[in-house]
Design a binder for these strands. Structure first.
Lengths: 206, 206
DNA sequence: CAATCAATCTTGACAGTGTCAAAATATCGT
DNA sequence: ACGATATTTTGACACTGTCAAGATTGATTG
């Protein structure tokens, strides 16, 4: 409710809720023009504050990006929980298929945030926040648990181990996401067919 | 043979083979410290030339990156051709498995170049060179042809269409590559098992 | 050989970036 | 009212990509 839309807030010396405001606006900017278009200075400008003010709330540009990524994890974690709740109503294979569809749609809708969650920018440089590290680990655990369940119920084709299955299945999802997110596959109209093909590859063919 | 190792070459005003030299050194620098660590100025410095000299051989930093990416495509194209030649000696499934292993190994060995080939930096901004565009398209055609062959021979599980199969299979490879390249999966020792699991998912279970 | 021309490289400049140190300002507890 | 603390600002530095104008060279003519 107090979501600081940089006009209505009184321009005090003390902003009041700069942390949230920065996070919100930064996410906005990234969604608009990509991760590269976000500069600390432009962000500060847009929030109506001086260049270095953000540094008192985020140690780094990196810390800011990690915080944004973390919110992304919260989103997918929520999605996963929602799906696991309605497990009684439909067949498990159906639910899995649907999850994959929405996962990839969501990843595309928030492309830039997704890139932050799993991109080299944060992970390859070895700079993920403790907090981000934990949240991502925790999310993979949730995913693993679901896949184990699907393997037990003979829905998924299980190979060497359910862990490997979970890793590879997710790699497939991730690969599809990246190809679309990064603009390598551009025909959005083919996406549904591709997802179905992928899911068929994963499901135990009966 | 004339591969300019920035010491032995006489420091003339005219470098002699600056284009090649830039390409070579830039690739080197990227392999060392990642795409982000390559700056035009440092590159020029290392080659022993002034800041803006590279701009007479590459329109942009982007153009330079595209050229490097292109060399990466040449490499994988070569790999694919080598594999398709020895098709008689072993079972097709075996050859496919082996290809996937070497593909992913190669991608990891040249992580940064791989990132250039398929990363957002070039593709998402819509800035691939004509030349790069063609070469990548051509490579996917080669891949598609092989997959079609493997589908015909009942080696691969064919879904809606061989095109979709080719796309999804490659997405799976790509997903695995990225997870390791970007430092999300770090246990290198699990890679072989994961690749096997992935291949099993793609092969027609007999 | 000398003179012109095109190819190649350099210097200077500008706007933009992340971030540190020191100074300024506001808020709060006493 | 005052001093402590939290918050923000100004100034500065080194770095980035790239443009415009000038300097230097090698090749091509007469």
């Amino acid at each position: 409710m107090k979501q600081t839309d940089s006009a209505s807030v009184s321009r005090n010396y003390h902003h009041g809720d700069l942390y949230q405001s920065l996070l919100f606006t930064a996410t906005e900017m990234i969604a608009e023009g990509g991760t590269e278009s976000l500069s600390m200075r432009k962000l500060a400008d847009r929030v109506g504050v001086s260049r270095t003010a953000p540094y008192h709330h985020f140690k780094d540009k990196n810390a800011l990006l990690c915080a944004i990524a973390e919110q992304g994890f919260e989103r997918v974690e929520k999605l996963l929980h929602e799906v696991r709740i309605k497990e009684e109503s439909e067949s498990l294979a159906m639910i899995f298929t649907q999850y994959v569809h929405t996962y990839i749609e969501l990843a595309y809708k928030h492309r830039e945030q997704y890139d932050l969650m799993f991109g080299r920018e944060i992970w390859r440089n070895g700079t993920p926040t403790e907090s981000l590290h934990n949240r991502s680990r925790q999310h993979f655990k949730s995913w693993l648990k679901w896949i184990e369940h699907l393997c037990d119920e003979k829905v998924l084709h299980v190979g060497d181990s359910t862990l490997r299955t979970a890793q590879v299945c997710w790699a497939t999802l991730h690969g599809l996401c990246r190809l679309f997110n990064d603009g390598i596959y551009t025909e959005q109209s083919h996406l549904d067919e591709m997802v179905d093909t992928a899911v068929n590859m994963m499901l135990k063919n009966t």
